[in-house]
Amino acid sequence: MVHKINPAELQKTVSSVPMISASASRLLQITSQPDHEVMDVVNLVKTDANLTARVLKVVNSAAYGLVNQISSVDRAVSYLGQQVIVSIAIESCAGELFAKELSGYEAVGGDLWKHDLRAAIAAREVVIQSGADLSPDLAFTAGLLHDIGKALISDYLRGSAPEAVALINSHDSLDYLAAEEHLVGVDHTIAGEALAKAWQLPPELTAVIRHHHQPSQAEEAWRPLVYAVHLGDSIAMMGGFGTGSDSMRYKLDPHYADFIQINANILANVMLVVDTEFNKLSEGLSDTGEKS
């Protein structure tokens, strides 16, 4: 049966999650700076032998179909782009968390990673195609991390999906976030924020994790970024990549229009690109043979 998660339990759950690696942590710090250089990323990758090996494995995988093998980190980073490097770094240190079976949402293992990857690509593409004044790479990173809280509260929600759905169906104003709060006392954005703090993530990433369903409540400085991920998240669900029972059961905040100019045509184009990019990226990442 579900019960309310008390603060001590939440802390215990957070501390049961392994820390992200030092290089992943630094990579998130670096790529969050608007004025960082590609060389900063290259140099960081070079300091981590494990990360270097994985980056080279991905760039030389069949998904990218290179005729000549790439053996230098510099070329691999510029060829793959920073978003792929971030994905590799996060997946190699927190892959288990993202691969967790979200039984509380009746979703299978791997659904969270796929949803986050789709949301990341979509957020990035929304920024690019709308011409918003934001870093596309930052939007990607934020999208990749936005739902980590689900992995923390899913076990507490086990068996509750029918009740959550019934609750939303009988109350017009409730979304899945409210249902989580009602059922276990802590929604996935609050749990995610607790993990973000334990991981010492940069403030803009923490803001996205905390406010991606209510972007207007984010600190003003991060609001455009939070809206970009808000849209990326919706696009991921619309494209059929949710995380189970909560899919589509969140509210769209139309005030995104204050920061992001997007019309039906741009949205359709974004959805097309997301499909193509997702297939390429997930093929490349799975080719490293370390993730199912």
Partner: peptide, 16 residues
């Protein structure tokens, strides 16, 4: 053809 909650016209791809 589902939509997210409180969707606006732009995001009503399901309906379109």
């Amino acid at each position: 053809g589902a939509n997210v909650m409180d969707t606006n016209d732009t995001f009503q791809i399901g309906k379109r």
